[in-house]
Write a protein that binds this DNA or RNA. Structure first.
Length: 270
DNA sequence: AAAGACACCTGGGAGC
DNA sequence: TGCTCCCAGGTGTCTT
């Protein structure tokens, strides 16, 4: 499940192979993604050089002149680098064929991802409303505390709100709250400033550690078989609903917050 | 304005 | 074995 670390890892994984290369064609086998892929996407990008790759939230931007190819991996999407043509498998929906003989292949079983022709770069409507990047200095205690003061939603929902801070999905939200010792159901405006500081630190720590670990799997982007080996995090709470807390040995509790399964420790998280 | 519900889609596991 | 049911996940959009 791609969250910010996986998207960042994907950017770094494909970058050495495609920046500076020209796009020979964009081959679309399945255009029904989150939004239909533009029918003229090939014409729009054919013959253009990929100048750079950047990430904004969980969106990847392959910059090509005045526009960019904006990719979102949704919940099940992945990119890999093909060193030479390989017969597409079941959910290999799109290939970006490059003039250096390599291809970037997009696979997405659940088709919640997107391939969008973006002519506005960072001003694109899907990007314009996004909140701060969690790994920059813009995301600090004062920023988050000011936002939380005005909100009564569960703190977990708040940190997963991409209009406030991008890139924190269901997995890392749970891990960060566990690390910070905060009950995910607690109203945002009932979390003290010192504890917000802990949470900011925890989010940065959880995300950067995952990116660091993801770096070690970059070689997988060109593995002959399979997809990028996304960081298999040793999760402390996520997906451990029926297990015991790694800190205190008490049973973890599983609840639903904002229609998302959430696991936490009632003893360690207040 | 904020919060909550819902939609999109498929594979995998549970239960019958 | 094979069917049905339910769930996971991100996020834009609609409803309250």
């Amino acid at each position: 499940m791609p969250e910010l670390p996986e998207v960042e890892t994907s950017c770094r994984g494909i970058e050495p192979f495609c920046v500076g290369a020209k796009i020979k064609k964009v081959e679309v086998r399945q255009n029904k993604l989150r939004w239909p892929v533009a029918t003229d996407i090939d014409q729009q990008f054919k013959g253009k050089m990929i100048e750079s790759i950047e990430r904004r939230g969980k969106y990847m931007l392959l910059n090509v002149g005045a526009k960019s190819l904006m990719i979102h991996l949704g919940m099940s999407g992945s990119l890999r680098v093909l060193q030479a043509p390989v017969k597409p498998g079941k959910h290999d929906h799109i290939d970006i064929v490059l003039d250096n003989g390599k291809s970037i292949r997009y696979n997405d079983p659940r088709r919640f991802g997107s391939f969008i022709v973006n002519t506005e770069k960072l001003a694109h409507p899907l990007l314009a409303k996004l909140g701060v990047e969690p790994l920059t200095s813009d995301f600090d205690t004062d920023y988050l505390y000011q936002v939380c003061k005005k909100r009564s939603v569960a703190i977990k929902s708040l940190i997963m709100n991409s209009q406030i801070v991008v890139g924190v999905g269901n997995i890392y939200a749970q891990e960060a709250l566990f690390l910070a010792g905060i009950n995910p159901k607690r109203a945002a405006n009932k979390v003290s400033k010192p504890r917000i500081e802990k949470l900011v630190d925890a989010i940065k720590e959880v995300l950067s550690k995952a990116i660091e670990a993801g770096g070690s799997s970059l070689k997988d982007f060109t593995a002959a078989d399979g997809k990028p080996g996304y960081f298999q995090h040793a999760h402390q709470v996520y997906g451990r609903g029926s297990e015991l807390c790694v800190n205190c040995d008490k049973a973890l509790k599983q609840v639903t917050i904002g229609q998302r399964t959430t696991t936490y420790c009632t003893n360690c998280q207040k």
